[in-house]
Design a protein around this nucleic acid. Structure first.
Length: 651
RNA sequence: GCCGACGUAGCUCAGGGGUAGAGCGCUUCCUUGGUAAGGAAGAGGUCAUGGGUUCAAUUCCCAUCGUUGGCUCCA
C-alpha cells in the first residue's frame, strides 16, 4: 500500500509532492538546509502556521523568515512569550493580560500584584530572556478543552486569562508551552526560543486592561528582539538617528517655536523664524487655493454658545472642552472656537444663494482651541490652540463628487510639493453598530459615504477603510504621514457633510426656482499648521527646500572691513524678496561657516577683499561646500533659478 | 484624565543631606582672519513651585505645575 501524498504549491508556482503530514520545516529542508535554519513559520493557504505543524491536504505554502512581515510578527509574538517566561521566573505569581506583536517589537501587559517593577528592572529581564533563549526550548502547541483551560488558569489564579477564555469557543482553544511557561495562545510561534539572539526592553507604561479606563491598569512592558545581535545594534542606531529628527528638538535648535509654562501647556509660541516658515507655507497654499476657486474669509476666535448648540458641537463636546466664557453683565455665554465650520455656515447665510453661485468655497486659516487631555499633548503635533488651513465648500448635491475629487487633487499637489510621497489614505466611516454617536439620518450618511468611496475609487487612490472613525457629522478621507519614529499622523482631511447644512438651515434656489439644501465639504490639506510643520521638520531634518526656508542665506564677511559690502549685498537680496542676514560677529570665516552649516541655512555668501573689489560673492551651499565666485547679477540669477528648482524639484 | 520616568545656568548635561559644576552660548578685551570651532577675562542659578522630615534640604518624603513614554481620547 502506497503512502498518501500531498501536493505543495510554492510561491514561485512549482508544485512538489510530499508525504501527507509533512511540516513546512521539512519542506524547507528539502529545499535547502540554510533556508530551513531561517524558517520562522509558514503561510499555509493564506493562514500563518507553526513550521512544525503537519500539512494534511494539498496546499499553497509560503515559508516565512525574518524578511517577511508575518515572519517578524511571529518572531515578536514568540518573544512576548519568552519575556513572560522570564518575568514569571523572576516574579513568581504575577498575572498576564495580553502579549501581542506590534509594528516594531511586542509588549505584554502584566499585573505584578504587590510586587514592584520599575524601569531599572528591565535589564534584569533582558538577561533572563537571553539566558532562557539559549536553552533553545521548543514552542509546543497543545489543543485543550475549554474546561481544562479554565481549570489551569483557575489554579494559577490568573483572572485575565480566564476572562479571555470566557469569550473563546470550546474546541478552538490552544496552549503554547516553552520551557516552564504555558500560555493561552492561538499561535503561531517560531520553532524554538534559540532563534531570539538579541533582546531589548524599551520601556514600561500603564495600560488599562482591555483598553477600558474603568478597569484595572496593568504594567505594559515594551520590547524588541532580533535574530542577530547586529540587527539590534542597527535598530538602536536608527532610534538615535530618529531622535535627531525630533521636531521638538529641531524646533528649539532652529528657533522656530517654543512653549512657556506661563502661557500654558499645549499653546505654542511661534518665534520669528517659525513664523516666517509658516507664512511661506500659508502663502503657498493660498496661491493654490486661489487658482482652485476659493475665496478667503475671516471669523473671530470665539462664538456664542448657541452657535455650537446649533451645530451640535456643544452637545457632543461641551463637557470635554474649555468652559464657556461669560459676559460680566448680561451673563451671555461664548465658547472658544473649536471649529470654523459653524462660522462659515453663517457666512453662507449672509445672503440668499442661487444654484449659479455654487460651489462656494470659503477658506480661512482659522485658529481653533480644543481642550486636549493633558497626557495627550505632544510637541506641535497635539496642541490646544492651533491654526487649521480650513475651507468649506458649499455645493449642490450633483457637484459633490466632482468637488471632492478636486480637493483630492489639491491635497496631492500639496503633499507632492513638500515631498511627502509616503502617506496612507484612510476612509473613515461611521460605526454601524453605534449610530447614536453621530448626528444625522441614515440617508444622509449613506450618500456621504458613497460619495467618498466613489471619488477615491475614480481618483485611483489606494485606501484603507476604518469603521467608527468618522467625524460625528460625516465620514472623511484622511491623509496620514509618518514622523521620524514611523508613527502615523493625520495631516490632510476631507469630509462630506449633509448634516450641518440641515442644522443651519442652509438653502439655495435651484433652476426650478425651488429651495434646495446644499452639501458641505470640510477640508484641510495641511490639517493644522502646527502638526504640518512638525511632520515637515521630521521629514526634512530641518533642511527645508529653499523656497520654504525661513533663513534662505547668510552673508559671511571675512572680516569687519567687508561689513559694508556685505550689507549692500544683503539689501539687494532683500529687495529681490529673499530672506537672510549678515553674520557680523567677530569670528573667523571657518567658524562662521561651521555655525551656518549647523543651523542648516541653505546658502552662504562669503565676501572678502576679492569679492568686494570685483562686486561678487563666493557661494557655499549647505552640505555641499564651495561653489566658486559669482558676480552679483549672476548671484541673483543663480538664486532665482535655485528657488524655482526647489519648488519644482519637489513638485 | 490614568500609570511610570524626569525637572540643576539661555542650551546640552554632570553632581549630590553641610546653600553648586562642565561644555556650548552670552558680555568685554585681544585678534582682522579665506571655506566646519583663534585667544583671554567676566557675568549668569531661591537646583520647577509649595509644604514636610532634619541641627541643616538643591539632594529624602508629599503635593502642585511642567516635560516625557504609554493607556484612554481626538470636532
Amino acid at each position: 500500500m502506497s503512502e498518501q501524498k500531498v501536493n505543495i504549491t510554492l510561491p514561485d508556482g512549482t508544485v512538489k509532492e510530499y508525504k501527507k503530514g509533512i511540516s513546512s520545516y521539512e519542506i524547507a529542508i528539502s529545499i535547502s538546509e540554510g533556508l530551513a535554519r531561517n524558517v520562522l513559520a509558514a503561510k499555509v493557504n493564506g493562514e500563518v502556521w507553526d513550521a512544525s505543524r503537519p500539512i494534511q491536504n494539498d496546499s499553497n505554502v509560503q515559508l516565512l523568515t525574518w524578511n517577511d512581515d508575518q515572519g517578524k510578527s511571529t518572531f515578536w509574538h514568540s518573544s512576548a512569550h519568552l519575556m513572560a517566561e522570564a518575568l514569571e521566573a523572576l516574579y513568581p505569581g504575577i498575572k498576564f493580560g495580553i502579549g501581542p506583536p506590534v509594528e516594531t517589537g511586542f509588549y505584554y501587559d502584566v499585573d505584578f500584584g504587590s510586587q514592584v517593577f520599575n524601569a531599572e528592572d528591565l535589564e534584569k529581564v533582558e538577561q533572563k530572556m537571553l539566558e532562557l533563549s539559549r536553552q533553545k526550548n521548543a514552542f509546543i502547541r497543545e489543543e485543550v478543552s475549554k474546561a481544562d483551560a479554565i481549570s489551569y488558569f483557575e489554579k494559577k489564579g490568573d483572572e485575565y486569562k480566564l476572562e479571555l477564555l470566557a469569550d473563546l469557543e470550546d474546541g478552538s482553544i490552544s496552549f503554547y508551552k516553552q520551557g516552564n511557561f504555558t500560555d493561552l495562545c492561538k499561535g503561531p510561534h517560531i520553532p524554538d526560543t534559540g532563534f531570539i539572539k538579541a533582546a531589548k526592553l524599551m520601556n514600561i507604561a500603564g495600560a488599562y486592561w482591555r483598553g477600558d479606563e474603568t478597569r484595572k491598569q496593568l504594567t505594559r512592558l515594551y520590547g524588541v528582539t532580533f535574530p542577530k545581535k547586529k540587527e539590534l545594534d542597527e535598530y538602536l542606531t536608527l532610534l538615535e538617528e530618529a531622535k535627531k529628527r525630533d521636531h521638538r528638538k529641531l524646533g528649539k535648535e532652529l528657533e522656530l517655536f517654543t512653549f512657556s509654562e506661563k502661557v500654558g501647556q499645549g499653546l505654542p509660541l511661534w518665534l520669528p523664524r517659525g513664523t516666517e516658515l509658516r507664512e511661506k507655507l500659508t502663502n503657498f497654499l493660498k496661491k493654490a487655493q486661489q487658482k482652485a476657486g476659493y475665496v478667503s474669509v475671516m471669523t473671530p476666535h470665539i462664538g456664542s454658545k448657541s452657535l455650537y448648540v446649533t451645530s451640535g458641537h456643544y452637545e457632543k463636546y461641551g463637557e470635554d472642552s474649555f468652559k464657556p466664557i461669560r459676559t460680566p453683565n448680561e451673563n451671555e455665554e461664548f465658547l472658544l472656537k473649536p471649529m470654523n465650520c459653524p462660522h462659515h455656515c453663517e457666512i453662507y447665510k449672509f445672503k440668499p444663494r442661487s444654484y449659479k453661485d455654487l460651489p462656494l468655497r470659503l477658506a480661512e486659516f482659522g485658529t481653533v482651541y480644543r481642550y486636549e487631555q493633558s497626557g495627550e499633548l505632544h510637541g506641535l503635533t497635539r496642541v490646544r490652540g492651533f491654526t487649521q488651513d480650513d475651507a468649506h465648500i458649499f455645493c449642490r448635491p450633483d457637484q459633490v463628487k466632482e468637488e471632492f475629487k478636486k480637493v483630492i487633487d489639491l491635497v496631492l499637489y500639496v503633499f507632492e510639493s513638500l515631498g511627502f510621497d509616503d502617506f496612507i489614505t484612510q476612509i473613515s466611516l461611521r460605526d454601524p453598530e453605534n449610530k447614536q454617536k453621530y448626528i444625522g439620518d441614515d440617508e444622509a450618511w449613506d450618500k456621504a459615504e458613497t460619495a467618498i468611496i466613489e471619488a477615491t475609487r475614480e481618483k485611483g487612490l489606494k485606501t484603507k477603510t476604518e469603521l467608527g472613525e468618522a467625524a460625528f457629522y460625516g465620514p472623511k478621507l484622511d491623509f496620514m504621514v509618518k514622523d521620524a519614529l514611523k508613527r502615523s499622523w493625520q495631516l490632510g482631511t476631507i469630509q462630506v457633510d449633509y448634516n450641518l447644512p440641515k442644522r443651519f438651515d442652509l438653502e439655495y434656489v435651484g433652476s426650478d426656482n425651488q429651495k434646495h439644501r446644499p452639501v458641505m465639504i470640510h477640508r484641510a490639506p495641511f490639517g493644522s499648521m502646527e502638526r504640518f510643520v512638525a511632520i515637515l521638520l521630521e521629514n526634512t531634518e530641518g533642511k527645508f527646500p529653499l523656497w520654504l526656508s525661513p533663513v534662505q542665506y547668510i552673508i559671511l564677511p571675512i572680516s569687519e572691513k567687508y561689513a559694508e559690502y556685505a550689507n549692500k549685498v544683503n539689501e539687494e537680496l532683500m529687495v529681490k524678496d529673499f530672506t537672510g542676514n549678515v553674520d557680523h560677529r567677530d569670528e573667523k570665516i571657518g567658524r562662521k561657516i561651521r555655525d551656518a552649516e549647523l543651523s542648516k541655512i541653505p546658502y552662504m555668501f562669503i565676501v572678502g577683499e576679492k569679492e568686494s573689489e570685483s562686486g561678487s560673492v563666493s557661494i557655499r551651499k549647505q552640505g555641499e561646500g564651495d561653489l566658486g565666485t559669482f558676480e552679483l547679477k549672476d548671484l541673483f540669477a543663480y538664486m532665482q533659478n535655485e528657488l524655482e528648482k526647489s519648488l519644482k524639484s519637489v513638485r
